[in-house]
Structures are given as C-alpha cells and as structure tokens.
Design a protein around this nucleic acid. Structure first.
Length: 597
RNA sequence: GCUGCUGUGGCUCAGUGGUAGAGCACGUCCUUGGUAAGGACGAGGUCAUGGGUUCAAAUCCCAUCAGCAGCUCCA
C-alpha cells in the first residue's frame, strides 16, 4: 500500500511504499476518519470539527453539531463516505504558516481547530486535503480515498473536548477500517463472539448473579451457583494463605468518622465514600477500605521485631460510591469483597515480602487459568503532590523498592504515572475482559503513611521504637470483579474444580431412575457436586439442557449401564465418550479436579 | 456525573393513541423415549415507577429509577 507521508528531510512531500503492516492499517484508519469528517461536513455544513485519530481497533472523529446523531444518520454518513471513496480523490499534503492557518480556520468557523493550531509549537502547520475537504493533520495518509475498501461506522457517543469534564461535550463517531473486506467481517464476528462471552449475559443465562432495581445499582446478588463458585475460590484462597504464613482476620463494616479522619480517607478519599450514618449521635462511615482496622489491630499491643512479619488476610467487604455511569456488571460495583491482606514488617523484610506477594499473585492467576496479564508500576504523578499523603523521601523509597522487586523477578512492566494510591505507590496487575479492556485485579501497595498517622511501631533489636512498614495487597482483586473475569475467561464453562455443578446423571427412562439416584449418591459421597435429572422427557432433550447449562459431565444410564454397572459418559469437552465403570470415571475426574483443568 | 440510546410475562423479543402478542422456560396430562428440542392443554403481564397531556395512554411529554455504548472518574 502507498501512503502519503510528511516530508522526511526536504520541504516536499514524498511517497513511501510500505508493507501491509500495522502502521499501514493505522494510516488507512486515520484516512478513513478524514473521509468520515468530509462526509459529515457535506451532510452538516455547520459542523465544528474536533479531532479524529486512529485507535486500537479503528478510529473516531469528534464533532460539534446542533443536532444529535442517530444510527440512521450513521448509515447516511456511510453512504456519503462511499461516494467520496468512489471519487478516488488524492490526499494532498500542504504546509502553511501558522498565522495563515489560524486565519483560515477562524474564517471557516472552526474554533477547535483554532485551539489546536495555537498549541502547535512550530512556525508551520500541515494540512491534508482530499477533494473539497481540508483538515489540520500531521499525517501520514493513504494516497487516494479509493484505497479504502472495507470500513464500518460502529457507534456514536459523547466525549468531552480534549477529555476534560469541564469542556463541552462533542459527538464522537467510532468506526473501523481494514485493508480487506474479510478482515472487516472477521473483526465484526469477533465482536459478536465477545458479546457471547460477556459475563453479564452469561451471568443471567447460567443463573449466577443478578442486580435488582429494588436493591440498588452496583450491588450484587450472588445466586447459589455463583455462591458455590465463590466458596470454592475462598476455600482455596484460605488454604493457600495459611500455607504461606498468613492468618485470617475479620473486621467490621462501619467505623467512627474519626478513624477515617486519622487514616486520611476523609480528606483524600471522601468522594468515593458513602455519607456518614448517624448512630446515637455519633457519625459512622461504611468502610471503603480495610486498612485502618488492620492497623488498629496491630496497635492493640506492643510489637517486637521478633514477631514480624505479620501477614493478616481478610475477605473484607467494602463499599465505595461510584458514579452511576461507571458501573459495569460485576467488574465495577459499589459493594465488593476484597481478598485483602495487610503485612506489617521491618524495612529489612520489605523486599522479600513484596516478592513473595508477587509469587502468590502469579500462582493464583495461574491456578485460575489466567496466562495473560499486564503489570504496572503505579507511581505519583508529576506536579500533583497535593493528591498524596506523605513526604518525598518516603515516596521515593517506596517507589524504588517496588521497582527493585519487579526487576529482581525479571518482570516486564509499564510505568503508570499518577496511578498511585493516595497513601503510596503500587504494583498493579490487570486482567482483560472479553472485549480486551483491562481491569485491575491483584495489587501490591506500599504504605509508609498509615503507620505514621497511627504511630504504629515495633521494638527493634536495639530496644528502641521503629516505624513499622505496611503492605496492602490483594492477589485476586475483589471477588465480584474476579468472578466477572473468570466467567469471561472461561466463557461460563468453568473447569471441573470450579464448576458449581460438576456432573448430571440422566436416566434413560423412569425404570433407570433408581440406579441413577444410586450413581448420584455414590459420587456425592466422594464430595462431588452432582444432580440427577429424572424429569419426564426424552434424553436428547435432557442432554441439550445439560449442554446449555455447561455442565462438565453428563452421565447417561439405561438398561445397558444398569446391567453392567457402568455409566455412559458425555463430557463437555469431547461429547459422547461411551461407557465406563463408575470407579474408572471417579478416578478420572478426581485427577481432573486435582489438575484444575 | 455528562452525551446518546433503551426499559412489554422468568428469558429473548414483536406491537399499536382506544384497555396486550410470539418463541423458549414453567405446570398438568399423554408419551418410556439412548446423547443438542415428542405432543396436547394450561397458567402467567396494572407494558420500570411517579406525574402530566387526552374523551381515551402501555403507545405522546416531563421527572425518577435501572440498564447499554462511550466520555470523565476509579484502578
């Protein structure tokens, strides 16, 4: 494909032949955005243009229009785009002195472009023109509009000008483009597939959880099947924590306002907290975090360096006020249970503690089948120190310590500036949902500040008081979000060890019901989760029900099985597998459970 | 919170200014059927909630609640 690129050395445009690469696709999409803007300008001459970049899977362009765009309008815009593509106009690059460009955009009534040009730190600015449409743009672009072979406009949504909440809201049209028609179709199919994996849909279909209007937004009702999964996760979680020297603690859901003032939450986290409750004239707050309780517990007696580290784990349910628009199924809720823990240690122990938490987080993610995740080192943002508690020295120390732990583990990570918590930097691990959106799961946060605010110390070997180091961490994140990610990860087909119902026994006729119930009993005696479908229906029907419910194993028993003392096995993975003795089957699934497959 | 869209029986959805429909699911009965839907009959909805317009509203308007896409936020 050929692209029109900005000049490399000389003051004139050059064309460069390129392979069909990712960069190439970006150029195509960016050019398609320009064509869309041209089409919109044709249809709505008064439009004020914002910006129109390419993004991960396509492009968008922001428009300021008097009327709101509907899906019907998208179709009109699409057909106008097809005209423009059909006319096969060339993209022509031109450089204009900045002041001239400013005048031009003012005359054209394009205030957003004026603003953009003013921010450009150069004497000249570049424009690209195709046909009757000219747009401020750095480039590069494809050679002619006719090169666009496959595109589709996907949605309209509001977006603040330059991403600032105080700026006017523009209408953003999202679209995508590919070099080949089948690539576009594949992408659209992929989106359809992703919809089927959506945990909100599967949660309903598989009767896992619900939200009820009467209950409130962002408050999860865990139905029995999800309850079962959660119990399995929690049991596993507890076992693994005890193995690693953790103790399990429990703390209340509310505490006096003063506690939250001391901890700093009242000053730094108030907008995420629900309003105080009045209890006998005292103000109490619903907890948004578990940490102040842990530190109170720590302070309940004098601590010696000989006792450290303390590793106190807690499945702590917290409540955070989230604005209505940000709620998202199980992935962003208002009440959730963190698989929290607070580690109190000496400065010397800090690094090895962080490393073992990283190990535990990796072990947990691997156990639940997550192979891909991103690690981010979340540090303070530049020039916004007022958002954080604590002095520069402690922050730098903490940030450096986390970074060192990551490097010691040879883990690749990205740096998230301004992503730190208000009380300290963190290592955040993100897991992706069906649509590839990242959600924070495990997190390891250093806190040199709470110990200071609560004056939490230990007696060192020198007999003097020293400030204790506190680590907050989760290795799953929150139970709600984790379940949501699990559902999408497995498309609702949970591995045997997690499946709420592992096995269903189906008798061929009423005559085999007794045998079927016996099989069920036998399997239940071995701790398996089994039911037996004795309803009056043909087995094809019952098998279908079992498949839709994504049950890992369906056992069919009829005359043959009764006579031979066997079960006919239908697995979710392989389908009909023929008959096995019950003992053989038991052996097999016990192995599968142990392997967490 | 902001922009736009949506809200009809358990689920998926159709429908129109004159007092509601389909399929699936559910119940009863017939059928006893070997690996993705056997048949008959039946029950089930104040069309999210509260106002307003109208002779008349589930259908139009407003507000609230809830959901969806995105922005912002969060992380």
């Amino acid at each position: 494909m050929v692209t029109v690129k900005p000049p490399i050395t000389e003051d004139k445009p050059v064309s460069v032949i390129m392979e069909d690469t990712e960069e190439d696709l970006e150029t195509l999409r960016h050019s398609t955005a320009h064509i869309m803007a041209q089409a919109v300008t044709h249809l709505y001459p008064n439009v004020k243009l914002g910006i129109g970049p390419c993004i991960e899977n396509g492009f968008y362009y922001d428009f300021d229009l008097d009327q709101t765009l509907s899906h019907e309008d998208l179709k009109k815009i699409e057909s106008e785009m097809k005209h423009i593509i059909g006319s096969n106009e060339p993209f022509v690059r031109a450089e204009i002195p900045k002041d001239e460009a400013l005048k031009k955009m003012e005359v054209l009534g394009q205030p957003y472009k004026v603003e953009l040009i003013k921010d450009i730190d150069d004497e000249k600015v570049s424009f690209y023109t195709q046909g009757d449409f000219m747009d401020l743009c750095r480039g590069p672009h494809i050679q002619r509009t006719g090169k666009v072979k496959a595109f589709k406009l996907l949605s309209v949504a509001g977006a603040y000008w330059r991403g600032k909440e105080t700026n006017p809201m523009l209408q953003r049209i999202y679209g995508t483009a590919f070099t080949q028609k089948d690539a576009l179709e594949n992408y659209l199919k992929l989106l359809e597939e992703a919809k089927k994996r959506d945990h909100r849909k599967l949660g309903k279909d598989l009767d896992l959880f619900s939200f009820q209007e009467e209950c409130g937004a962002g408050l999860v009702l865990w139905h029995p099947k999800a309850g079962r999964i959660r119990t399995i996760i929690e049991d596993f979680w507890r076992k693994e924590h005890y193995k690693r020297g953790y103790e399990v603690v429990y703390t209340p859901h509310i505490a006096k306002l003063d506690l939250w003032k001391t901890s700093g939450h009242w000053n730094f986290y108030r907008e995420s907290m629900f309003s105080p409750l009045d209890i006998e004239g005292q103000e109490y707050l619903l907890k948004p975090m578990n940490c102040p309780f842990a530190i109170l517990m720590y302070k309940s007696q004098l601590r010696s360096y000989r006792d450290l580290p303390f590793r106190w784990a807690e499945l702590g349910t917290v409540y955070r006020y989230e604005r209505t628009g940000v709620l998202h199924g199980l992935l962003r809720v208002r009440g959730f249970t963190q698989d929290d823990a607070h580690i109190f240690c000496t400065p010397d122990q800090f690094e090895s503690e962080v490393i073992s938490v990283i190990d535990l987080a990796q072990f947990m993610l691997t156990s639940f089948g997550f192979k891909e995740y991103e690690i981010e080192l979340s540090v303070r943002g530049k020039g916004e120190k007022e958002k954080y508690i604590g002095g520069d020295a402690t922050w730098e120390l903490a940030e450096g310590a986390l970074q060192q732990a990551l490097e010691r583990k040879h883990l690749s990570y990205t740096l998230g500036e301004g992503e730190a918590k208000f009380y300290g930097p963190a290592i955040d691990i993100k897991v992706k949902d069906a649509l590839g959106r990242g959600w924070q799961g495990p997190t390891i946060q250093v806190d040199f500040n709470l110990p200071e605010r609560f004056d939490a110390n230990f007696i060192g070997s020198d007999g003097k008081e020293h400030r204790v180091v506190m680590i907050h961490r989760t290795v799953l994140g929150a139970m709600e979000r984790f379940l949501g990610c699990l559902i999408e990860h497995y498309t609702g087909s949970f591995p045997l060890w997690l499946a709420p119902l592992q096995i269903r026994v189906i008798p061929v006729t009423d005559n085999h019901a007794e045998y079927a119930l016996g099989v069920k009993q036998r399997l239940e005696n071995d701790g398996l989760r089994v039911d037996c479908n004795t309803i009056n229906a043909k087995i094809g029907y019952k098998v279908r029900e079992g498949i839709i419910e994504k049950i890992p194993y369906i056992l069919i028993v009829g005359d043959k099985e009764v006579k031979e003392g066997t079960v006919s096995v239908r697995s979710r993975k392989k389908g009909d597998e023929g008959s096995y003795s019950l003992e053989h089957f038991l052996e097999r699934i016990k192995q599968e459970i142990a392997a967490k497959e």
